[in-house]
Structure formats: C-alpha cells, structure tokens
C-alpha cells in the first residue's frame, strides 16, 4: 500500500508498504530515517520513541497504515539548525551516552517530558523515562542530563 505522512516537517510518500509492518520499519527501511532504534519491537524498551501527532509513542507498535496522514517527529527532527538541541547537548556532556542505542529514544522521551514539565523533580524524571531501557549507564548520568537540559532550556527562556 501507499503511505503518506509528514515526518520532521517534510511530506513523505512511500509505496509498497506491507500492511503488517510497523511505523518503525517504515521510518528505518523505507524513509532512510534509522535514528529510531529496533531494540525490542514490543514496546518494552522505548528505543523507537517518536512523536505521533504530538504524542510520545513507540513507533514499533504503530501499524504503518495507522500513520497515514500523521505528523511524525523523530529524533532526527529535534536538532536545531545551528546545532544540537539543548537536550541532545546535555546528553553528550553529562556522559549519558555510551553505546548510544537507547539514546535517540531517551532524547525524544526527555523532549516530551520537558515540554510538559519544565522543572521536573528527580522522581518525575524517573517516572517519565521508565519506559526507556538503558543497559550501559545505570541511568545516573541520564538523570543528570535531563536536569542539565532543563536548566539550560529555562535559561534560554529567560534570555528570550
């Protein structure tokens, strides 16, 4: 089947989509957007997190056809024109990235958290990120990165 949707602000149209495949597969294999990762394909790791019409979802659990006409933002769509998004920069600087396979999912989930809650407590951070598994870091530096990002975004807002 044919699938049309908007991904990271660009209209996308792909043909030959198999009805049973996931949005994750479409993004990775048909739209050349492999930033969303394929770690479990059962919604248990968060590595494939994207925004679907503004909602944070696991793209592995969205049937391709369900994304018809949808507005999708992936990790590839978060960086700013002049460089990394402050969340991305914070993840690098805090040491929250090791192998990096979980990182795109954490970045998108953190983005979702901070747009809803600009100044989350540690437990709010942990509850919001409980759907994202990381096997390398033990999460300590991920929490640090989220806090660092929150502070920098707050500073940006104050300077704006």
């Amino acid at each position: 089947m044919r699938l049309k949707c908007t991904v990271n602000g660009e209209a996308q149209e792909v043909d030959g989509v198999w009805e049973g495949e996931s949005l994750l597969y479409v993004l990775r294999e048909r739209m050349a957007l492999p930033g969303s990762k394929n770690a479990c394909e059962q919604g248990e790791c968060g590595s494939c997190s994207v925004y679907l019409n503004g909602n944070l979802v696991c793209s592995c659990l969205v049937a391709a056809g369900q994304a018809e006409g949808a507005d999708i933002t992936t990790v590839e769509g978060l960086a700013r024109e002049d460089g990394l998004h402050p969340i991305q920069r914070a993840f690098v600087e805090a040491g929250a990235v090791q192998c990096g396979f979980c990182t795109p999912g954490f970045v998108v989930a953190t983005h979702d958290l901070l747009r809803r809650n600009a100044d989350p407590s540690e437990m709010e951070i942990r509850e919001a990120l409980a759907g994202n598994l990381c096997r390398c870091t033990g999460y300590t530096k991920i929490v640090d990165a989220v806090r660092l990002a929150a502070e920098r975004l707050e500073l940006e807002r104050r300077q704006a």
Partner: peptide, 23 residues
C-alpha cells in the same frame, strides 16, 4: 580529562550508524 565522546553528537541525533542501520 573528562572528555566527552566524539561520537556523541551523532548518537544523540540518531545519525550514528549502528550495524542494524546499514543499507
């Protein structure tokens, strides 16, 4: 030094090529 990863930028942007991303 506390040096950050040189592949970090690619990884946070989703542009780092993992083996499963090859095409």
């Amino acid at each position: 030094e506390r040096v950050v990863r040189q592949d970090g930028d690619l990884k946070v942007k989703g542009e780092f090529a993992f083996s499963s991303d090859l095409w």
